Amino acid sequence: MTPISPDRPLLEVADLRCAYPGNTCNRLFAPRQWVHAVNSVSFDIQPGEAFGLVGESGCGKSTTAKLILSMARASAGSVRYRGEELIGRSEADWIALRQRLQYVFQDPLGALDPRMTVLDQVIEPLTIHRLHDRARRRELAQALMQSVGLLPGQMTKYPHELSGGQRQRVVLARALVLEPELLVCDEPISALDVSIQAQIVNLLQQLRRERGLTLLFISHDLSVVRHLCDRVAVMYLGRIVEMGRANELFRAPRHPYTRALVSAIPTLDPGSPNQRLLLPGEPPSPANPPTGCAFHPRCSQATDRCRQQQPELEGDSRHRAVACFHAEATAREVA
Rank of each mutant, 00 (worst) to 15 (best):
V104W: 09
Q206C: 00
I240K: 06
E282C: 09
R98Q: 15
N274M: 11
C18S: 11
E12K: 12
L192S: 09
Q146I: 02
L86Q: 12
P6R: 08
R130E: 15
L69K: 05
L203I: 04
Y158N: 01
R134W: 06
E333D: 15
T24P: 03
R259N: 07
I265V: 14
L140P: 04
L53P: 09
L131V: 11
S190F: 10
G292P: 04
R251D: 12
P108E: 10
L162P: 01
V54P: 13
P256D: 11
S75P: 12
C306L: 02
L86A: 03
A294P: 09
I218R: 07
V232L: 13
L279Q: 08
A19I: 09
Y236F: 14
A74K: 08
V177W: 03
T63N: 04
L207Q: 12
G60Y: 10
K157N: 07
W94L: 15
T258W: 05
S147G: 07
V225Y: 02
G60C: 09
P289Q: 12
S147A: 14
T117G: 03
G165P: 08
N202A: 05
L268R: 08
E161A: 08
G149V: 01
L183D: 07
R211F: 12
D113R: 04
M155R: 07
T258M: 02
D133H: 13
I87Q: 13
S263P: 06
S90T: 15
A329C: 04
R251I: 00
D7M: 02
A287D: 07
D221N: 15
P256M: 04
R100L: 14
S90Q: 09
E210H: 04
L215G: 00
D193P: 13
H319Q: 15
L112V: 00
S223F: 07
G77E: 11
T24M: 15
Q46K: 11
P290E: 13
D133R: 05
H129N: 09
H129S: 08
P266D: 15
L192A: 13
A246Y: 09
A141S: 05
A50Q: 01
E187W: 04
E187M: 10
S195Y: 07
S62D: 14
V334M: 10
S70E: 09
V54W: 10
L69M: 15
P159F: 03
S90K: 14
L112Q: 00
L178C: 12
R137W: 11
L101S: 12
L131C: 02
A14H: 05
E312S: 15
S223W: 03
T127M: 09
R27G: 14
K66P: 03
L279M: 12
L112S: 01
Q106H: 10
F295L: 13
Q301E: 05
A141V: 07
Q197H: 12
P152F: 01
M1K: 02
I200H: 03
H296A: 13
P290D: 11
N202T: 04
P114K: 00
G77D: 08
E210Q: 14
L182D: 03
R174G: 12
H326V: 10
R82A: 09
G238N: 06
D44I: 00
E56M: 12
R211A: 05
A302K: 02
F105R: 01
V171P: 01
R89H: 08
A14R: 14
L10Y: 01
P6G: 09
F43L: 04
V118F: 12
T24D: 13
N202H: 09
T291V: 02
H227Q: 06
L140E: 14
T64N: 07
A135F: 03
R298V: 11
E312H: 10
P297G: 11
